Simulated assay, not measured.
Amino acid sequence: MENPLLETKVWQYLETHLGMDVSAFALLKSPFENLSSAQLAKQLKGLQVLKEKVPLWFESKKVLCPMGLNLEQCSSQATALYKVGLIDEKYPKKNGIDLTCGLGVDAFFFSRIFEKFTLVEQNEELLTLVKENFTNLKVENVDFVLSNAENFLSNNPKSFDFIYLDPDRRNKANQKRILPEDLSPNLHLIVDVLLERSPLVMVKFSPMMDLFQLIDSFFCSEIHVVAVKNQVKELVLLFDKNKENKNPKIVAVNLESTHKTFEFSLKNEQELAISYHSVQKYLYLPNAAILKAGSFKSITKEYEVFKIDTNSHLYTSIELLEDFPGKGYEILEKVENLKSIAKQSFQLVVRNYPLNIHKIKAKYKL
Rank of each mutant, 00 (worst) to 15 (best):
Q122Y: 05
A24K: 11
F346K: 08
T79E: 12
E333S: 11
S36Y: 06
F264L: 09
C65I: 01
N171D: 15
S278H: 13
L129I: 10
A273Y: 11
L18M: 14
Q347D: 13
S75W: 00
H224T: 00
T79R: 07
N245I: 07
Y13M: 07
V84F: 04
P185C: 11
P180T: 09
K53E: 02
S265D: 12
E124K: 12
E256Q: 15
N3H: 14
R112W: 06
H188I: 13
L64C: 04
P4E: 13
C74L: 06
K61T: 05
F58N: 03
L18P: 03
H224D: 09
V251R: 04
V251I: 15
D106N: 11
E234V: 03
S23N: 09
S206Q: 08
Q231F: 13
K172P: 00
F110L: 06
K267L: 13
S257K: 11
L86T: 11
V10E: 08
V84A: 07
T118D: 11
L127G: 01
L179T: 10
E33G: 12
N268V: 04
T261A: 03
N174K: 15
L56K: 03
S221R: 02
M1W: 00
E2P: 01
E244F: 02
K301C: 04
S154V: 08
Q77C: 07
K260W: 01
F296C: 05
I331T: 09
C74I: 03
P248R: 03
E256G: 02
L6I: 06
N3Q: 08
R170E: 12
G328W: 03
L6P: 04
H259Q: 05
G328T: 10
Y13F: 15
N133G: 11
I190H: 08
S217A: 14
K297P: 01
K233Q: 14
I215C: 02
D161L: 13
I163Q: 02
S111D: 01
K267W: 03
A173S: 13
L14Y: 09
L44K: 04
